[in-house]
Amino acid sequence: MSSDKKQTQLRLAPDVLAAGKGAAAARGLDFNKYVERLISEDTTGARSAGMAAAQRLIDTQSAFLDDLEADLDAQHTPAAQNRDAAA
């Protein structure tokens, strides 16, 4: 079985490695595929395009997002939790 992929070696601080492996697992990827995807997204412009789209969403929907965050925060206050428990 032949592959056109090349092997490389990284040296990462233990906490960075753990964070990377956790992020990969959360996305259902093995660590190698996760690193490959990060590099690909960064070098092809896909990452910056995604970040620009996210910023446009924040810029155009900030009032809605602020209201949503306030509603979610209100649901998790001790008063709201006590009220729900009493109901």
Results as ranks from 00 to 15, higher is better:
residue 63 A to Q: 12
residue 34 Y to N: 05
residue 9 Q to R: 14
residue 29 L to S: 05
residue 58 I to V: 12
residue 4 D to P: 05
residue 21 K to P: 03
residue 30 D to P: 05
residue 52 A to S: 04
residue 28 G to K: 06
residue 50 G to I: 01
residue 2 S to R: 13
residue 65 L to K: 06
residue 46 A to M: 02
residue 75 Q to W: 11
residue 60 T to G: 09
residue 56 R to H: 13
residue 61 Q to I: 07
residue 6 K to V: 04
residue 60 T to V: 06
residue 23 A to P: 06
residue 38 L to Y: 01
residue 19 A to N: 08
residue 64 F to N: 07
residue 10 L to F: 09
residue 78 P to F: 10
residue 39 I to Q: 02
residue 6 K to E: 09
residue 25 A to L: 07
residue 26 A to Q: 14
residue 8 T to H: 08
residue 41 E to N: 15
residue 78 P to C: 03
residue 79 A to E: 13
residue 17 L to S: 05
residue 13 A to C: 06
residue 14 P to T: 02
residue 59 D to E: 14
residue 48 S to F: 09
residue 70 A to I: 11
residue 17 L to F: 04
residue 35 V to S: 00
residue 31 F to N: 02
residue 64 F to S: 09
residue 4 D to T: 09
residue 46 A to D: 10
residue 14 P to S: 04
residue 36 E to L: 00
residue 49 A to L: 10
residue 81 Q to I: 15
residue 40 S to P: 06
residue 3 S to K: 06
residue 26 A to N: 07
residue 82 N to K: 15
residue 4 D to A: 06
residue 67 D to T: 14
residue 86 A to G: 08
residue 69 E to T: 14
residue 52 A to C: 00
residue 39 I to N: 00
residue 26 A to L: 09
residue 60 T to I: 08
residue 36 E to W: 06
residue 30 D to L: 04
residue 87 A to S: 13
residue 59 D to W: 11
residue 78 P to W: 08
residue 17 L to V: 00
residue 7 Q to G: 07
residue 57 L to R: 08
residue 46 A to Q: 07
residue 33 K to M: 05
residue 77 T to N: 10
residue 2 S to L: 12
residue 42 D to T: 08
residue 3 S to T: 08
residue 86 A to N: 10
residue 13 A to R: 13
residue 16 V to E: 04
residue 40 S to T: 15
residue 77 T to S: 15
residue 87 A to H: 15
residue 57 L to Q: 11
residue 84 D to N: 13
residue 77 T to W: 11
residue 17 L to I: 00
residue 53 A to T: 02
residue 81 Q to L: 15
residue 78 P to A: 09
residue 81 Q to T: 12
residue 37 R to L: 11
residue 31 F to A: 01
residue 66 D to M: 04
residue 48 S to Q: 13
residue 31 F to I: 01
residue 80 A to T: 13
residue 44 T to L: 01
residue 73 D to H: 12
residue 31 F to P: 04
residue 27 R to N: 09
residue 5 K to W: 07
residue 14 P to R: 01
residue 55 Q to W: 08
residue 44 T to N: 03
residue 42 D to Q: 15
residue 14 P to E: 09
residue 56 R to P: 03
residue 68 L to D: 04
residue 45 G to C: 08
residue 76 H to W: 14
residue 52 A to F: 11
residue 56 R to F: 10
residue 18 A to G: 02
residue 86 A to E: 13
residue 6 K to H: 09
residue 51 M to P: 00
residue 40 S to W: 12
residue 28 G to V: 00
residue 8 T to C: 09
residue 42 D to C: 10
residue 23 A to C: 03
residue 19 A to P: 02
residue 4 D to L: 07
residue 19 A to M: 07
residue 29 L to E: 13
residue 76 H to I: 05
residue 77 T to H: 05
residue 49 A to W: 04
residue 53 A to C: 01
residue 82 N to P: 14
residue 3 S to C: 05
residue 78 P to N: 06
residue 36 E to P: 00
residue 12 L to M: 04
residue 63 A to W: 09
residue 35 V to A: 02
residue 63 A to H: 11
residue 32 N to F: 06
residue 20 G to F: 01
residue 18 A to S: 01
residue 82 N to C: 09
residue 84 D to C: 10
residue 86 A to V: 06
residue 54 A to K: 03
residue 78 P to E: 13
residue 39 I to Y: 04
